[in-house]
Simulated assay, not measured.
Amino acid sequence: MANSIPAPRAEGLHYLGLRDDIARRIATGLLGPGDRLPAERRLQADLGIARGTIREGLFQLEAEGAIYRRDRSGWYVSPPPVVYDPTRWEGFISYVEAQGRRPATETISAELIVADPLLAGVFGRPVGAPLYRIRRRRYVDDRAVLVERIVIDAALAPDLLSHSLDQSLTDILKSVYGLSVARNQVSMRPCALTGEDAAALGVKSGLPGLHVQRLSHDAGGRVIEFDHEYWRHDAVRIDVDIRVR
């Protein structure tokens, strides 16, 4: 593993110089996905530049998605992103496994709530109608990549919370309740990961992310799920295959 960065060839290396040097090593394969970078103190000693300057360079690479930080462990080269096609209806587990990666799901919270005016309008239900709200953290190759908030009409899936929600929710809804998605409305926008979402993903608050909102309908037009996903910006790549007829 290439885990050393030699001293700069000229004095006065600023943070962009450090950024460019590490980026070049990643691009040429000297540093590969999952490789750990030298500790900040090691870089400071080897390069003879201020700790703040080193952090500026590392933060720049993090913002670009080239590296990421693990709590109390250091900086690592980012793995390849998961490819996501929002025009296809596949559960997270299915499309991650299809790419040769290891998916996992962790349920953070699951509760019964009542519909406020906004959710009542989304689901076409009266205010006060029972809904399930589920919050989960999802992993690829043991790395947390997204946090999702899912709201489901409790009338369509009674006793849903008695099931293990660490497995595929799509499979539970289909096999237990006979609910299949026939139509998805998906919107995506860049966002900043903040608050509990940043904490759940172990990233610095304010790091760029991708917000995916999904409204899933069955064949009869009923809304089954209303989802909000908050992805690490370096963990996903959007690919769409459009066929022109």
Score class of each variant (00 low, 15 high):
Ile5Asp: 04
Pro80Ser: 01
Ile172Pro: 01
Gln44Gly: 02
Ala154Thr: 05
Gly57Thr: 03
Arg232Lys: 13
Glu56Val: 02
Ile224Gly: 07
Asp159Lys: 09
Arg102Cys: 08
Leu131Gly: 04
Gln44His: 04
Pro80Cys: 00
Asp159Arg: 14
Ala10Pro: 03
Leu201Tyr: 06
Arg125Asp: 00
Leu207Asp: 01
Glu229Trp: 12
Pro81Arg: 01
Asp234Met: 07
Leu210Asp: 01
Asp159Trp: 15
Leu156Lys: 04
Arg125Tyr: 05
Pro86Glu: 14
Gly100Cys: 10
Gly221Met: 10
Ala27Met: 02
Thr107Phe: 09
Pro208Asn: 05
Ile224Val: 14
Ile152Tyr: 06
Leu131Glu: 09
Glu111Ser: 14
Gly12Gln: 06
Val151Lys: 02
Arg36Ser: 15
Pro38Ser: 03
His228Asp: 15
Lys204Cys: 05
Tyr132Leu: 13
Asp35Gln: 00
Ala198Asn: 05
Ser168Asp: 14
Gly128Glu: 14
Lys174Glu: 06
Leu160Cys: 07
Ala23Gly: 01
Phe226Asp: 12
Pro158Ala: 01
Gln167Val: 15
His14Ile: 09
Asp85Trp: 13
Val236Ile: 15
Asp234Cys: 06
Gly100Pro: 12
Tyr68Val: 13
Leu207Phe: 05
Gly74Lys: 04
Gly52Tyr: 06
Gly220Pro: 10
Val114Met: 09
Ala182Met: 06
His233Gln: 13
Ala129Ile: 10
Ile5Ser: 08
Val244Ser: 12
Ala154Pro: 11
Trp89Ala: 04
Gly221Pro: 14
Tyr76Glu: 14
Leu58Ser: 01
Val96Ser: 03
Val223Cys: 03
Phe123Gly: 09
Asp21Asn: 07
Tyr230Gly: 02
Leu215Arg: 12
Ile26Glu: 05
Asp227Leu: 06
Arg135Tyr: 05
Phe92His: 05
Trp75Thr: 11
Tyr15Cys: 01
Gly48Lys: 08
Ile172Thr: 08
Ala144Pro: 00
Arg9Gln: 07
Gln60Ile: 06
Ser162Lys: 12
Leu112Lys: 13
Asp35Ile: 03
Ser168His: 10
Ser187Tyr: 10
Gly124Gln: 11
Arg149Met: 11
Leu37Phe: 00
Arg136Pro: 02
Val151Trp: 05
Ile172Arg: 02
Val203Pro: 05
Leu119Ile: 06
Ala66Pro: 01
His228Cys: 12
Gly34Tyr: 00
Arg41Val: 07
Gln167Leu: 11
Thr28Gly: 00
Glu11His: 07
Ile49Ser: 01
Arg183Gln: 13
Glu196Leu: 03
Arg102Tyr: 11
Ile5Trp: 02
Pro130Ser: 14
Thr28Gln: 01
Glu90Phe: 09
Phe226Ala: 04
Val240Asp: 07
Ile150Leu: 12
Gly202Phe: 13
